[in-house]
Amino acid sequence: MLNAMTLTGLILAAAAPSGAHGGEYGDAHGAEAAFPPFDPTYFATQIFWLLLTFGILYLLLAKVFLPRIGGTIEERSSRIADDLDAASRMQREAEEAEKSYERALADAKAKAHNVSESTRQAVDAEIKTEVDAADAEAAKAAEAAEQRIGAIRDKAMANIESVAADAAQAAVEALTGKRPTLATVKKALN
């Protein structure tokens, strides 16, 4: 479609000079004028102003604006790179700190374990000696009690003999009217 329109333009332009032959170098106004883009009256001024304005734009861009924009972009990208470097360095440092912290924690745990173990052993030993001492005392007391019991039993046995002799004397006296001597009775009892 654009090409078709271009063709129309070209045809118009080609047709124009026949109608405006006189006006081409004179005043190019009104419907009789040449197709404006092909009117050479204004070629010089357009070229002049184009070169002037384009030249100014080029100088402004080359000397002022592009260095500024490029500088800003460069500065930003280098700043980002720096920041990334710093971040990775900090991360490394943090990792190292974590490692050393873990090492310290492990050391402290081991130490604490040792301390508790040795304390437990010491306490165990103390308990054992105390228990032993208590056992020994208890054994002594039990022995003493046994000896006393033995003595009491012997005494009681001895008493039983005399009581039995007495009772036998009394029984014989009651039956016979005659009181036997203690030695006889004892002889008879044994």
Partner: peptide, 8 residues
């Protein structure tokens, strides 16, 4: 002729 025009 380098007149200042509407184009310029």
């Amino acid at each position: 002729d380098i007149s200042f025009t509407n184009s310029a």
